[in-house]
């Protein structure tokens, strides 16, 4: 009879009882409010797209010039390449660091579970801005040891970004690990003669595919949108360059913003719809 209760709110009975009337009023009010909310969230996004295709202000003719410029400007192209590279490196390093550790803790060191969880979620509590202040002296050392030809390449930001993506990655992987019996799977594989590497690569990973994918996509989205750390440590990633270009041509910036936004939207929408499991809750520090 559960259907009955939901039915109440969606389909008012045909007779015009007080309940039916107030249900109708509620539905109209609900629709109006939802439209208002939708407007608040849609207008800025629509304005981005509108402005990226107008040559002057709103009265100017349509143009795709700014969009074309994204692909031509060498500075933007470098930043785009570096940011994508950075996103990939961050995802891979964070996965390589976290997944084996989490599996190992589950199998052999259950007592460390709370400690690892605490450490992984810690970056949620410490603002990225604070971490930047602490990273500054460390990055002086990193810059000192970086070979000259890679000088000022933002790829070294990966060290910091791994920390930033850790909470989200941890939640996603933890959800994945909780849904499979890691211990039994590992013991079964070990009893068949598999080494630890094989257990990880051939047994755990395939069963965790959606969680791993989830975690990786989240990290990519996060890194592509990161501004705080890069700008304050003076590295040129996508967002920093976008901000710089704004001083010269707002049209290109707007097109770039629209492009990067669409990319992240597609990424995350794919995540929430395609992945059967719901993504770990995202509360980014990137504001």
């Amino acid at each position: 009879m559960a259907a009955v209760t939901t039915e109440l709110t969606t389909a008012p009975p045909k007779n015009q009882g007080a309940r039916a009337r107030s249900a109708l009023r509620f539905r109209i009010g609900r629709a109006v409010l939802l439209v208002l909310f939708a407007l608040f969230f849609a207008v800025p996004l629509l304005a981005l797209i509108e402005f990226s295709t107008r040559s002057n202000d709103l009265t100017g003719p349509r143009t795709l010039e700014y969009w074309r410029y994204i692909g031509q400007d060498p500075e933007i192209r470098t930043a785009l390449r570096d940011s994508v590279l950075l996103a990939l490196i961050t995802s891979v390093v964070a996965l390589a660091l976290l997944l084996p550790t989490m599996v190992w803790v589950r199998l052999r060191l259950p007592k460390l579970h709370r400690v690892v969880e605490f450490l992984c979620l810690l970056p949620l509590t410490i603002p990225a801005l604070v971490l930047v202040v602490g990273w500054a002296p460390i990055y002086l050392w990193i810059a000192y040891f970086t070979p000259a030809q890679f000088d000022s390449s933002p790829v070294v930001l990966a060290f910091a970004y791994v920390i930033l993506v850790m909470p989200y990655m941890y939640r996603s992987l933890d959800a994945g690990l909780s849904s499979i019996d890691v211990r039994t799977l590992a013991e079964a594989a070990r009893s068949l003669g598999a080494g630890w590497f094989t257990v990880m690569a051939r047994v755990i990973m395939p069963n965790m595919l959606s969680a791993v994918l989830n975690a990786a996509l989240l990290s990519v989205a996060l890194v592509l949108g990161e501004f705080t750390v890069a700008s304050l440590l003076n590295y040129d990633n996508l967002q920093v360059v976008m901000n710089n270009v704004a001083q010269i041509s707002s049209g290109v910036t707007v097109a770039l913003a629209a492009a990067s936004l669409m990319f992240v939207f597609v990424l995350l929408f794919a995540l929430s719809f395609v992945g059967r499991r719901r993504p770990a809750r995202v509360i980014a520090e990137e504001k």
Partner: peptide, 22 residues
Amino acid sequence: TAAAGVLAQFGGVTLAFAFIVS
């Protein structure tokens, strides 16, 4: 719900520009 998941972590330069052009 899906949009909230995206927008909750939306911020920075892109958001600033979205509001500037609005």
